[in-house]
Design a protein around this nucleic acid. Sequence first.
DNA 1: GCCGTTTTCGGCCCGACTGTTTTCAGTCG
Length: 573
Amino acid sequence: MDKKEIVNVLERISVLLELKGSNPFRTRAYQNAARALEASSISIGGDISAKELEKIKGIGSRIAEQIQALARDDDLDLLRELAEDIPPGVIDLLKIPTLGPKKIKYLYQTLKIENISELELACEENRLSGLPNFGPKTQENILKGIQSVKKYSGSFLYADIYKQAVEVLENIKSHKLVQKADLAGSIRRKKEIIRDIDMVAATDKPQQVMDFFLSLEQVSDVIARGASKSSIKLNTGIDVDIRAVSPLQYPYALHHFTGSKEHNTAMRSMAKKKRIKINEYGLFKNGTLIGCKDEKDFFNVFKMEYIPPELRENYGEIEAAKEGRLPKLVKKQDIKGIFHIHTDFSDGSMTMLQACSYLKGLGMQYAGITEHSKTAAYARGLKEAGIEEYFKEIEKVEKTLEDFTIFKGIESDILPEGELDYSDDILDEFDFVIIAIHSHFNMQEKKMTDRIITAIKNRHSTMLGHPTGRILLARDPYKVDIARVIDKASEYGVDLEINANPHRLDLDWRMVKYAKNKEVKIFINPDAHHLENLNDYMYGVDIARKGWLEAKDVANTMDRHKMRKYLKEKRSR
DNA sequence: GCCGTTTTCGGCCCGACTGTTTTCAGTCG
């Protein structure tokens, strides 16, 4: 089993233990271990040593052994035993809001409810109402929850809901009693998938702000209404939570509601050792508030650097902030040029001139045009005969634009055996080559990994495009040992792409950090087919930041002269 | 199950809201 699968197993054990009602701290130990393993840069092979694993904080002797067993045999007695006790459908019940492990366990034991459909039927037949601690309201809420899960997946793409979030936020800000308001939660942390929108408002009259919030025209349902905290469902299906606090409490509340839960837990635990209590209202030493005017002050109380929201995942940011070694995260302004652009030469809708003029208008210095290669017939991939015309067009457009460089590129398919689909002679003519998988997704992991590594070894390869092939909320990544791919990319001097298309955001930020540790450079590319997609590179910058990247880690922060030299050196390796 | 400036046992983050109760457990973030 590879690292990612082992992380999944540990998370699964945690969920199963929770459903069994085991010691909650044991449950959390597995969760923590999963995160710790995921965040570590350790490489997992069949011969991984327990000692090596135990060095990771959060992994003790017992779990180290279990990870060893998983890496070696793909098997674990504990998991098998737990899975025998609990049918797979029961785990799905956790997706239903208002339903947690305790209630699920009870329903499973008393009513033998094993999946969502059975639960729905039981609610409709009024079998829940009347059970101890279950009343008519609970039953109704569960039914509502099931409908919501069925109708919406319960998850949303960041790009799809960001606008709605800002719209609601602007509404809140417009209220005369609101002094300050910000987005918080996963959207502020720039997670690729968002389950709900969180915001915090500073006001001296929380009740009036709550009333205003609940009366917004986008509200389709009120989930909770409290004196300082409320939740609503928007008519687009996503929930919004808002918290109103006094202006004095605002920085603490903003930190609290930005999370993540794991970051907060670790911060509180750390604070507690210094006899400081953290809650959403403040930092308290012996019951006395430690004043902070903003989040920067907040971290400063613990002699920590300010931790940007993107990094607050308890992936090592707390230790790094204490030691003053947080990265200076890459910014949108650092990006000097854009690669991975499809024009109407293959399956794009814009002309080359439109794309490049637009980028120049954004202040960019260069573009790397990449049409699909010939195997991608569905996308009108370039046949050998069309390449000369393609180059001529590039040269023509380049001449019309002053101080702007266009690099001649191709997105070359990686064929099933790992070969590229043009001859060496032809590949030699391009300034750069993005290698990528577009077919034969269903391969065994080893075969897929070897296929990609074979392509990485090709001296023409500049970078690996959308490295795992995932489509968020739609298609799983193909089976690939991405850590091994990154190791080989590092060895052979091939870069990796963060595909910034909001449906992809591939490479995943967790692995971006891994790539950084392996000194693999990253290109942030929009994979644009339409003019408006060219701006998507900004989502890629968010992901790069979330993966701890600095400007020097991102290839397309180079100016156009350095980039030309860089690409040339890559070709001659 | 993990961990240690309260160290090898005894803790393990903190609070709001809901729905069920009649003082609180469960869920959520």
